[in-house]
């Protein structure tokens, strides 16, 4: 049982000091979680601390590959709207 930080991480450091197991470490190109140490905060907190402060939707996933913060859950931007804005920017 362990969480994983993936490439959309922006290296903002917010999660690193919160981990009760010191499982999160700075790495290139982005922060990583040491799977052996991660307990998903079970026994320490009701919610995984890294996923509770992470500002980037989709950057932290569980072992099933599911985002703890799915698209739209943090910014409030509907995913369709976001995709349309990204496409418009890319087209410029």
């Amino acid at each position: 049982m362990a969480l994983e930080i993936i490439e959309s991480c922006v290296n903002c450091w917010a999660c690193e000091p919160l981990c009760p197991n010191q499982a999160i470490y700075e790495a290139t190109p982005h922060f990583l979680i040491e799977a052996d140490k991660c307990t998903e905060c079970s026994g320490d907190f009701a919610e995984a601390q890294c996923a509770s402060i992470c500002p980037i939707e989709g950057a932290i996933i569980n072992q099933l590959g599911e985002a703890l913060n799915p698209p739209g859950s943090l910014t409030g931007i509907p995913p369709g709207r976001w995709a349309a804005a990204q496409a418009e920017i890319a087209a410029r």
Binding site: V10, N11, C12, A14, P17, I53, P55, L74, T75
Partner: peptide, 12 residues
């Protein structure tokens, strides 16, 4: 770098 809130005018 870290922030503890999200503002609608900011992108992290």
């Amino acid at each position: 770098p870290a922030c503890n809130i999200q503002c609608h005018y900011c992108n992290r």
